[in-house]
């Protein structure tokens, strides 16, 4: 499902002394099936954009197309439930949204709201708990008796249970320890491929954006300033620094290495594994040429 933002502007508390402009003239295309990363420093407008993706916020200027649905500034939008079912959002620290007596009920909450049958909702919950690497016993426990990492997974399951076509992730790994972080990110990537989801990742981590995304948008001062493929975006160090972002570490290391040795590696390394391979290749070529 495509999402298209056209010249979107948004102000919080419009027409009050507290009015605060958050977005200006944002045009952004999220192609169906893509894994889009939205990056930008804190306060650049990332989370405001994110809330437009399923009409939690309505633009104060411009329009947002979500699949076939158009949400326009100044036009009352009714019945947004369909849109919200199709676009699932995993908010930052999603474990804060848990509330029900048992994990099972909490995961079923979303699907039941959207009119899925009890049996089907329960089936999805059982399946997701397994997919997310949680022991089946947790289903009957209270979500508040789980560890932080487990609560996070249950909350994610609650969003996935609605079977959205688009999955929007807002810093899904914030506060997790390194192992937890890697596991969750790999899981989302697997789901993206297996279920053919359109994934939007809002993140501070250039490494995650470089590793997983195939489409990158940079937000800066409420504007969407650049969009493109990760390779172009992350190899342009100067541009990144203009927007107060650091290039991923793999690319920084690659540049250091290239400068020192006076060689050029085959390609821009977006992941650590790729960098290792690239270096090995360069070293073996060096050997061959002797």
């Amino acid at each position: 499902m495509d999402i298209l933002l056209q010249e979107v502007g948004y102000s919080y508390a419009k027409d009050t002394p507290f009015e605060k402009r958050a977005l200006t003239d944002v045009s952004l295309h999220i192609p169906s099936g893509s894994y889009t990363a939205i990056i930008g420093h804190t306060g650049s407008g990332k989370s405001t954009v994110l809330q437009h993706l399923n009409a939690l916020l309505k633009p104060t200027e411009g329009s947002v197309m979500i699949g076939g649905r158009k949400i326009e500034a100044g036009v009352k939008a009714k019945n947004l439930r369909d849109v919200r079912r199709q676009v699932g959002i995993v908010f930052q620290f999603p474990e804060q949204q848990l509330f029900d007596e048992t994990v099972l009920k909490d995961i079923m909450f979303g699907p039941l709201n959207y009119g899925v049958s009890e049996e089907e909702a329960s089936r999805r919950a059982h399946e997701l708990v397994e997919q997310l690497g949680l022991p089946p016993e947790v289903l009957t426990k209270s979500p508040f008796d789980l560890s932080g990492g487990q609560m996070r997974r249950v909350a994610i399951a609650g969003v996935l249970a609605m079977e959205p076509d688009v999955l929007v992730l807002d810093e899904p790994t914030a506060g997790l320890d390194p192992r937890g972080r890697r596991e969750i990110m790999d899981l989302f990537h697997r789901l993206h491929i297996e279920k053919g989801l359109t994934t939007v990742l809002v993140t501070h981590s250039m490494e995650d954006a470089a590793r997983y995304a195939d489409n990158v948008a940079i937000m800066h001062n409420g504007r969407c300033v650049v969009t493109g493929e990760p390779v172009e975006i992350f190899s342009n160090e100067e541009q990144l620094r203009d927007y107060r972002l650091e290039p991923p570490r793999t690319i920084r290391l690659q540049q250091k290495l290239e400068d020192k040795m006076g060689i050029k590696l085959d390609s821009i390394s977006l992941t650590e594994e790729a960098l290792a391979k690239n270096i090995a290749l360069a070293l073996s070529e060096g050997r061959d040429s002797e």
Partner: peptide
């Protein structure tokens, strides 16, 4: 802020 955030999170899960 937190109320707003949780409200939105639950709205995204179809509760309104």
């Amino acid at each position: 802020d937190e109320t707003g955030k949780i409200l939105k999170a639950q709205m995204a899960r179809g509760s309104d």
